[in-house]
């Protein structure tokens, strides 16, 4: 991946910045350029999402995507954030046996990968279970 392509998405990937539609108040993440609900009538403003959500589904990946080979097995989930949007994120720091649909998670900043020994290091978000209190 070229540096500009990675650099453009830094606000969203590092700080969970999405957008909020000024017309229908829907919060959208990943950020969009047109609100799919009211199209061009709503003005989209940056919005920082709360880094909390719950697990809608998950899978344990044994045959890795390119660049993730050293991580297998790793857990990938779909998380519904408290603000509404759903995201795809790895679920980290836990064993697959500990995960259930409906579990509450927090979104944390993590290293995602790197481009060889001298290339860019990719960062982004992963999800981590919140222990039940």
């Amino acid at each position: 991946m070229g540096v500009p392509r990675f650099w453009r998405e830094i606000p969203s990937r590092y700080n969970l910045i999405g957008v909020k539609c000024g017309n229908c108040n829907k919060i959208l993440f990943p950020p969009r350029f047109i609100c799919p609900h009211c199209r061009r009538t709503g003005k989209l403003e940056p919005y920082k999402l709360k880094p909390k959500g719950k697990v809608l589904s998950y899978t344990v990946i044994h045959v890795a995507a390119q660049g993730f080979e050293r991580m297998v097995p790793y857990i990938l989930g779909i998380i519904e954030l408290e603000d509404g949007p759903r995201i795809m994120a790895q679920i980290t720091d836990c064993d697959e046996k500990e995960i259930n649909i409906g579990d509450e998670v927090e979104i944390i900043f993590r290293k995602m990968g790197e481009e060889g020994k001298e290339g860019v290091i990719y960062y982004g978000f992963k999800a981590r279970k919140i222990p039940k209190s």
Binding site: S57, T59, A65, I78
Partner: peptide, 21 residues
């Protein structure tokens, strides 16, 4: 590419997420 594959998704994984649900 930006929001699924960047996170480590593969095609079997996407359908596995549907299967689990």
């Amino acid at each position: 590419q930006e929001w699924e594959v960047y996170q480590g998704a593969t095609f079997p994984a996407l359908y596995a997420l549907m299967a689990r649900r």
